[in-house]
């Protein structure tokens, strides 16, 4: 009985709230493309002005992420991939779901350490995050790692959505599962594009100005 519920919770948390937050994160980032440095900063400030933001973050992100991540690692550990025998699309996605899960887990820890943890310990303000991202993605190594992490996360999200629909008994027959796989492929392409275009935008010089201003303020203080 335990396994059934823990797996169901894992599946649910992946979409609500984590999937929802993933999309929200994508839109916040995209504000950098639409509104430049000030647009991004406004977006970040709006998000942090939500009521009970601490609890929203705790129950909407931190705890679900911890559960989904740790239980997901256990699921990945339990699998015994057999692509050598069944070199077929669905089996590839099964295997990639586990691999991208692990990549995403590591990437998120690193990304959180670079951004949210720095805010928490007080070395960066929310307003300076655009500049911080600029510093990160101007390094070619970091940019590459971020691209890998983002593509992995986008795949894990989109394919996870596909298997969520099966695990909850929404797409039952082969036709609905085929249609949903095309839809999820579309979501993958769209989400990846949105995240990557925002990532590249952070390389723009206008974010650097914000960063250097923040830097100079800090040194002034």
């Amino acid at each position: 009985m335990k396994g059934f519920y823990s797996r169901k919770i894992h599946s649910l948390l992946g979409v609500i709230p984590l999937g929802a937050f993933f999309i929200e994160h994508m839109m916040t980032n995209f504000a950098a493309v639409e509104g430049g440095a000030s647009g991004f900063t406004d977006s970040v400030i709006w998000l942090n002005s939500l009521p009970l933001v601490f609890f929203l973050e705790l129950f909407g992100i931190w705890l679900p992420l911890l559960y989904h991540g740790v239980y997901g690692l256990y699921i990945a550990y339990q699998s015994k991939p057999n692509l050598n025998r069944f070199n077929i699309e669905r089996n590839w996605r099964y295997t990639l779901q586990r691999i991208t899960g692990i990549i995403t887990f590591v990437f998120i820890i690193w990304h959180l350490f670079q951004t949210r943890v720095q805010v928490a310990v007080g070395s960066v303000e929310h307003e300076e995050l655009g500049g911080l991202m600029h510093d990160i993605v101007t390094s070619p190594l970091m940019l590459t790692l971020y691209i890998i992490g983002i593509v992995a996360a986008c795949f894990h999200f989109s394919n996870g959505l596909w298997s969520f629909l099966i695990s909850w008994g929404i797409t039952v027959g082969p036709r609905s599962q085929r249609v949903s796989s095309y839809l999820c492929l579309g979501i993958f392409v769209l989400v990846t594009f949105m995240f990557l275009i925002s990532l590249v935008t952070f390389r723009d010089a206008e974010f650097q100005t914000a960063a250097s201003i923040a830097q100079s303020i800090k040194s002034f203080i």
Binding site: M1, K2, G3, F4, S6, R7, K8, I75, S79, N82, R85, F86, I88, R90, N91, Y94, T95, Q97, W162, S163, I166, S167
Partner: peptide, 19 residues
């Protein structure tokens, strides 16, 4: 099937239907 080792063990690789 809702006990341990039941339906939740499926990972949707869908090899079974092909095999």
């Amino acid at each position: 099937l809702m006990e341990d080792g039941g339906i939740d063990g499926c990972g949707n690789s869908q090899n079974c239907v092909r095999a």
